[in-house]
Design a protein around this nucleic acid. Structure first.
Lengths: 229, 229
DNA sequence: TCAAAAGTGTTCTCCCTACACCCATGG
DNA sequence: CCATGGGTGTAGGGAGAACACTTTTGA
């Protein structure tokens, strides 16, 4: 194919990369894909690809996400653009990076997913390009964001127990909380709706199920919301 | 000039734009430039320009900042990348946006500054491109950031009074604080160093001067710092 | 002598923290 | 019947919010 797209000044290529977080009840997980072409063939990398000329970066990130997970409506958040001139050996490539929070139970292998795999955050292999750095920055931003937005709910199933919610917060922030104080704080925020149902979560006794109350949350976001931990 | 830079796939142009904040003691100010060429000739816009192929976005933003303000070492922070395919009528242009916090007293007219002008945040005219939107997002991010980082000090002169610091926080957050509680909270953080000097700030009585204690702040940032307002 | 600005202190309340206790269930 | 996990309550401390008093100086 001829090199038919010509400009008076040099232009960089632009991609989107997506750090896809999931939660399995224990540790935070990240979805990685194995590269099938050079450079870095065989290395694990973040899902991503070149931005089409008629889509926004967000649309590109959602497209990548759909291809890898089959999910149409996940929560995504742009967090940084990486522009080191030498971050890709082929040509100059600038990447607009997003992180996505998905309910891991809803993810089935998508089109591209033959080589996609979940990795616990503590067992990430060495990644292609500067993706190690991108991933580090994504987890850092997720930790910050969780103080302002109840993003945790994007990672949990529709119905969940307080214990599961606590496990998630502990996994994201890398700390542990007092069981009773955590429940009190969360219930006091009034963004949880108690359901009539209960479950037997592997344990001795049934536990109440809750659902995220998004109307209440939208209300709170107006007058400034902050979550202390 | 011939269109000599050719690629196999279409590439967008990439720029950096910079929202430069200053503080004059009363209101937050933003530095704007008047466009001398089409499109949007004569309209006010954020300083910015095309990214060179051998510089990072941060270097590009610092270069723009230097050209407009003469400042070499200002605080800048990347906050979002704007990628709407139609945000520039000429061709597809993606912009990596930064905000900068500068000590307004140190800014003299730089090279490009013939047409640069400070505007109070409340009196911003209608801007070129999507710069209104970019500016709104920058102020929002600045408001969030101030809860985690004492960025206010980047906007004040080396030595300042508590009253000036309070005026700054009030200007950024758009609220007003009790004078005594604000002083107590700030001094309690131990990131201020009291100086021996005093000043007569337009008022009846002399006031103590303070300096930002950056060693102490770096210490605090390790163990998680949060500022409540 | 009065008003305005700067410095310091006190009280009250609320929220966060660190705890203890009860209940239900499965072994 | 006892260990485990789930649900709820209580006492203490610290920080923020609301508020008052004093001092200095210029008009």
């Amino acid at each position: 194919m001829a090199e038919q797209y010509c400009y008076r000044y040099p232009h960089p290529a632009v991609t989107t990369d997506c750090v896809i977080f999931g939660f399995d009840g224990g540790e935070l997980q990240v979805l990685l894909v194995e590269r099938g072409i050079e450079p870095y063939m065989g290395r694990w990398a973040l899902p991503g690809g070149f931005l089409k000329m008629d889509e926004t970066a967000e649309e590109g990130a959602l497209r990548e996400l759909r291809e890898e997970t089959g999910l149409e409506n996940a929560y995504i958040q742009q967090f940084h653009t990486f522009s080191d001139p030498r971050r890709d050996p082929r040509e100059r490539v600038i990447t607009i990076a997003y992180y996505a929070l998905v309910k891991i139970q809803n993810v089935y292998g998508g089109d591209d997913a033959a080589s996609a795999c979940w990795f616990p955050l503590s067992e990430i292999p060495s990644l292609a390009f500067d993706h190690d750095y991108i991933l580090r920055m994504a987890t850092q931003r997720l930790r910050e964001e969780i103080h302002f937005q109840p993003v945790g709910f994007e990672l949990l199933p529709e119905k969940f127990t307080i214990k599961e919610l606590q496990a998630l917060y502990e996994a994201i922030l890398g700390v542990s909380f007092d069981r009773r104080n955590f429940a009190k704080k969360m219930l006091h925020l009034e963004i949880l709706t108690e359901l009539d149902e209960t479950v037997w979560p592997t344990s001795k006794r049934e536990a109440k199920l809750y659902r995220f109350n998004s109307e209440k949350y939208e209300e709170m976001k107006q007058k400034g919301y902050r979550l202390e931990f």
